[in-house]
Amino acid sequence: MNGKKLGWLYGGLLLGSVLAIAMIVIKPVGASTQFVILDGIIWDSISPIVSETTQTTTGYTSENSYLAKNEGAYAKKVANPFSYSLIFAISIAFGGLLSRYTMGPKITQEEKSTPTVWMNRFGKGSSYKRYIMTFTGGLLILFGSRLASGCTSGHMMSGMMQTSVSGYFFAFGVFLTAVPTSILFYMKKEK
């Protein structure tokens, strides 16, 4: 059975309801912070980076100034990884699977290495180039997200939902560079 993606009306209704329910029940959704927590967990398992202290309100601190900021808020999450937000982020992957196996949009074998838009521009057999570019993209996106303190979910969706000024400015900054970048990068060569 071949599934289909939802149209904008029902799709927006579904996504919007999830955003609202999350905020009403516990807190607005967000994803990018969890990469910091994940890095912190790996770092801490190689060489201890977070420690308990009586100096901060959270009871945790870190030698790394980013993990130690805001009274050791991130340090606490690294020390207690099974907090709400990390489980939330991991569950996103399960949700995607659930949709896929309940008549959600299907993916072709070819698309598993490179999306159609990439194949149309760079041809088949260019998947290693695509891997390098998604790696670089991921690097820029998370560096940018941390600089901005949020990403598409935390700033653009949850932020603008709450009429947060920072959400609007984040969206402005993103589209300012993303639109010309993708137009130029995926522009077909003149035949």
Binding site: V29, A31, S32, Q34, F35, A89, I92, P115, V117, M133, T134, T136, G137, G138, L139, L140, I141, L142, F143, G144, S145, R146, L147, A148, S149, C151, T152, S153, H155, S166, F169, F170, A171, F172, G173, V174, F175, L176, T177, A178, V179, P180, T181, S182, F185
Partner: peptide, 22 residues
């Protein structure tokens, strides 16, 4: 940082087409 970070994000987004959640 929100504006500058957004612009850095956009450079990666325009090429990769993924965000942290997706």
């Amino acid at each position: 940082g929100v504006i500058v970070g957004g612009m850095v994000f956009g450079l990666g987004w325009g090429v990769a087409g993924y965000c942290p959640g997706t």
